[in-house]
Every structure is written in structure tokens, then in C-alpha cells.
Write a protein that binds this DNA or RNA. Structure first.
Lengths: 336, 336
DNA sequence: CTGAAAGCGCTTACAG
DNA sequence: CTGAAAGCGCTTACAG
């Protein structure tokens, strides 16, 4: 810590240029010099100062991750936490370190960090407003968006095919003969909730079953509580449905709690499906049928693609969506 | 991004020294000069380069967080994720940015990062081996440990009073007359699991009930699966207990799943208690009685204390433990 | 193969 | 109140 390249140079009887060469393993260094330098480094426990290096290299080897979550947890979120884990994993693999910032920061501190160029690139997770996207575009800093709302076609944007997922959910329910269905939908400002709902609705309609608006509860958040409340409201409106689709697992889990409190059984009285396949979905009691959406793969890809962008290797901005997958569990089928 | 302090200086017709003064708001600058500089900054959208600044200031305003989790998720972990969220929150408040690193990194890359002085201080979360602690001590870099195993009295170490928590759990069960109890314990190398178990055991013994070793399942991990397996094993050994204590909530949840699969009810046939009060404990079905352990407060304190250390303000190394709290829910009481 | 020099973008004394 | 100079710890051409 306390030693600099000069200390190593002196100790080895060479110039700092030579030390620099052996550290970066570039250029020519005689075997003897190299040996002496390596020895000094070892003795002094010398480590190059990354900040100084970053300054001249104009590269920090840092990636900033901004997750938009105004009031809710970020890391511990069952969906976004998974993405973050995947980002962490891939970043370490590719030699990047990760700065994690909350959106609250974004308006002030974290924005400054980016502006102050302490990161080589950015990963924006979840919903971000247009101004922000424009802002980053103007910064000429490479960035990718993950699971956000974005209609700029020139922005790299990783998303699940949520509409297809909604369709899969509907098809599964229909295959079980569950035509009397209600829905709890998360906030429609979020691309994913909107599309999941649309895909679900369209499929029912296509099969000749209309989903009246009073069969849908529009939740204010995508949290457990809203699922709980949502079911109560729907049941109060008209207790005549046999199945419930929620646009994410947390909502579904909240609904299940409310269902049991009413003395009803899942799936005997009401079959329930969620969306996302968060870890708890499989652990829950009863286990929750759901649509698996990419989290780990999205996180990994975000870093890999960003890495390419940082290196100036242009990739297609127009990436295919991740394909969702049906997971049938107890909450619809009644069997493991 | 592309502009430097020189560009601002030229545009304003002053020297870069003056620009620096207005940016850092230090020293004297005439009102007119200040105004011109501010205007240029605005026009050019200039932002100081944080890397350059960090180099001369010898301060990065960065804190590194290392979470030890060899094979399991980090951010999305219901316990550590919460701590991380709290760290993120407090750090942003105090003007620090957070680097998150996994332990896999630690042996190579992240260790280098620390050595390369890209952080002003460190937060070490969870179990870390002795060498590592010594290593950091030798680096003369301020650090605090959170929820780890550490017997160095000169290391700042934030922990819950897990033994007391185990005691609280035992007292609660005893108060319900549940003397025929079994236990699933997480890995004893972890300070917290060890102490939770000890506190629990001692309390039963004190009340005249011995907990034979065959009543305890020693799990290989602290995950859901091990709870599931643990119950099956215990039940196979001797299906004569009416209550189960698990040293964390995930284990308890896994056990509950196994209990239901055996056709038994919680708490009617078997009452279950966990430990930690992760978010999902309250959401689970049935809701899980548990011992609340500090997560958010620990995360906040870790940053605040580290901040003081970084500033050279010495604080007591000997901090009081966080006091655990009993949360009674359906899984023991049979009522909300 | 190696060293001296210049420079990355800032801040911090020091003259004036 | 302000500017020139030195320096933070490195890397990168450029001579030799």
C-alpha cells in the first residue's frame, strides 16, 4: 500500500519504466531485470495503484449498475437480486468490478459518478425514464438496459418475451379447463406487467372467453401486500372465479395467503399462477405454478455485451427476447 | 465528459487553480470570476474527473463490500441481501459509493482492488478466515466486520446476540409446553448457528429437559433443501417430537415443506420456529414464528462506523451486540 | 533491452 | 484574490 513504483525501481536498481513493463508484461525486459523486479515487488508487497493506472489508461475496469427501485429493496429483491448476482458473477469473470447504485442516487451522486467517469460502462436495470436514457446517450458512455421500458431502437435492451409468457400462462389454465379466471396485475407502467397481462388476456379472448375489467385488479405495486389485498377485493366484487393469474410471483403469493384466510384451498377452490419463478415459488406452500423468466442469463449477458461495447466491438442492438417457460407446480395442478 | 478543468479555465479566462477553487468551494475567488467559471461549467457540462481527483486526494469515496458466500447467491440472499441494501442506503447518504465483491474474487481480483487502494474502507460480511482478517489488518485499511466469526478483540465487529436469540426461542417453546423438541442446525463453523443452537440447548437443559444428540440434525448448509432433508431424517430417527427449532428461517421453511408432505400440520402436529425474520417468514404459509435479528441496522451501522474510521475518528472496537426479538406467528401459536 | 521525459486531470501550497 | 509550479503514481512513446 505504502510503496510506489519508484520504491520498487530503486530497490531493483532499474527505472520505473522497466518496473512498469514487467508489471504490465509488455515490451522487452531482460530476464535478470525481470527477476530482480519481481523479487522487490514480492518483498515490498507492492501493488500498483489502480487509481493512478486508471487515470492514464482512461479505463477504470469498473461497471456501474443502477437499479431503479424507488421505495423498495434492491439487492434483496427476489427478481432484481438475482440479476445483480448474475452481474456480479460475470463481471468478476471478465475482470470488472461492480459499483451498485440505487436510483435515489441517480439524481445526484451516482449521476456524478458516471459523469466523473469512474466507470467504463453502465447497466441500467428496471424502469428508467426517458430523460435519463437520453442523458446517458449524450454522455457517450456505453450502457445496456435490462428489463426496462425502452422504445429507443438504438439502445441495447435485454428483455423477456413477457407477452409470450402471459400467453403460456393462459394456455396452461385453459388446458385445465379454468375459464372462470381473475387477474391481479402489477403496475402497467412497467413494460413487463403490461405485456404479461396483454398476452394473457388476448389468449383468453382468442379462445372465446372475455376477461371483463371487473375481473382484473390493478395493483399499485408488485408486492406481496397488493396480492393479498387484490384477492380480497376481487372476491368481494364477485366470488365466482376458479383461477387466478398474477403478473408476478410475489403478488400471487400474497393472493394465496388471502385465499387461505378465506378458508379456501389452492388449487381445489382456486388455482393460482404467478410469473417470474422466483426462488420462493418452488419453496412456497403450496408450490407455485409460474412462468420462468430469465434472470441469471440476462445478468450474464448484460455484462458480456457491455464488455464488448466498452471494447468498441459493435454488436447488434436488436437482441432477441428471452423465451419464457412454463413451470407447473401444485398451485394449479394439485400435484408436485 | 470530454472537457477538463483546462477547458473551463480557458473559457472563463482564468487559471485552472481558480476553477479548482470554485469547484471545491475553498479559498478565495472573486464573485465575478466565480460567476464566469460557474457559467462555463454549465455551458460545457463539465464534471470533474473523479479518478484524477481521487489520485491527488488519496481518497476515493468508495467502500468495498465483501460478502463471503462460496456457492450461494449473495445479493438475492434473504439475510445478506438485506444487509447489503442497508449498506447501500447509508453509503449513499454519507457520500460513498459501494463496490460489491464476492468472496471468489477475494483470493484474486477483489483482493487486488483493495490493495490497489481503490477503496477507502471495507465491510466484510459473513464468515472470513483468520488469514484474511490478518491480511486486512496488515493493509492498514479501515474495515469492519458484519455478522462474522471473529475473536480478534481489536477488530470492529457487528453481531447479533445469537445466543440470547436461541434462548428466546427456547423460552417461547417451553412456554407453550413444547418439551419434545428437535432441532435442525446450520453449519456450526458459522458463529451464529453455533450460538443459536447453544442458547437454545442450554435453556432446555436449565429447565430440566435434555436435548439428546439424535434430536439434532446437523445440516451441511443453511439452505431450504437442508431443512427439508433434515426433517425427513429426524422423523425417520424417531417420530416423537412435537416441535422443531431451526437455526434459520430458510431451514425452517424447508422443514415445513417436508412436514406437510408427510401429511402433518403446522403447528397442530409440529410447531416450528425459525431464526432471522427474513421477509418471507411473515409471508409464508403458515406464517413462521421466528427470532428477529438485526439486518438493516447492522448495515447502516457498518457504514457509519466505517466512515468514522476512515476519517480517523477512533471509536470503541467493543460494540454491544444487537438484541434479538421474538416474533410469534402461526407456526407455533396457531393464530395470526 | 532500458531510461528520461511527457502527460493523464486534478489539488495544494506558495508567491505575488 | 489569482496564477505558476510541483506533484499524486502510473503508462506510453521516444531515444539510445
Amino acid at each position: 500500500m505504502k510503496y510506489t513504483i519508484m520504491d520498487v525501481a530503486k530497490m531493483s536498481g532499474v527505472s520505473k519504466s522497466t518496473v512498469s513493463r514487467v508489471i504490465s508484461n509488455t515490451g522487452y525486459v531482460s530476464p535478470e531485470s525481470r527477476k530482480r523486479v519481481l523479487l522487490s515487488i514480492e518483498k515490498l508487497q507492492y501493488r500498483p495503484n489502480g487509481v493512478a493506472r486508471a487515470m492514464v489508461a482512461r479505463q477504470t475496469q469498473n461497471i456501474g449498475v443502477i437499479i431503479y427501485r424507488q421505495h423498495h429493496p434492491i439487492a434483496s429483491h427476489p427478481f432484481y437480486g438475482k440479476i445483480l448476482d448474475a452481474i456480479l458473477e460475470k463481471a468478476s469473470e471478465l475482470g470488472y468490478s461492480i459499483f451498485v447504485m440505487t436510483d435515489k442516487d441517480l439524481t445526484s451522486k451516482s449521476a456524478d459518478f458516471l459523469l466523473e467517469k469512474r466507470v467504463d460502462g453502465l447497466i441500467l436495470v428496471s424502469k428508467l425514464n426517458h430523460e435519463l436514457i437520453d442523458y446517458f446517450k449524450n454522455m457517450y458512455i456505453p450502457f445496456v438496459m435490462v428489463n426496462g421500458t425502452c422504445d429507443h431502437s438504438d439502445v441495447i435492451h435485454l428483455v423477456n418475451d413477457d407477452e409470450r409468457g402471459g400467453e403460456l400462462a393462459a394456455q396452461h389454465m385453459l388446458s385445465l379447463g379454468l375459464t372462470a379466471v381473475s387477474v391481479i396485475s402489477g403496475p402497467l407502467e412497467h413494460r413487463s406487467h403490461k405485456l404479461r397481462l396483454e398476452g394473457f388476456q388476448k389468449t383468453y379472448q382468442r379462445e372465446g372467453f372475455t376477461l371483463d375489467d371487473d375481473r382484473i385488479y390493478y395493483a399499485n405495486s408488485s408486492q406481496f401486500d397488493e396480492g393479498y389485498k387484490g384477492f380480497q377485493q376481487l372476491w368481494e366484487r364477485s366470488p365466482n372465479f376458479k383461477a387466478l393469474f398474477a403478473t408476478n410471483d410475489m403478488i400471487a403469493l400474497g393472493a394465496i395467503k388471502a385465499i387461505y384466510e378465506k378458508g379456501l384451498q389452492v388449487p381445489e377452490h382456486i388455482a393460482v399462477m404467478g410469473f417470474d419463478d422466483i426462488d420462493y415459488a418452488a419453496m412456497a406452500n403450496p408450490s407455485l405454478s409460474t412462468i420462468h423468466s430469465s434472470k441469471t442469463k440476462m445478468g450474464h449477458d448484460a455484462v458480456s455485451i457491455l464488455d464488448k461495447e466498452i471494447q468498441g466491438i459493435t454488436t447488434t442492438k436488436d437482441l432477441p427476447m428471452y423465451v419464457p417457460e412454463l413451470k407447473v407446480r401444485y398451485s394449479t395442478k394439485g400435484t408436485k
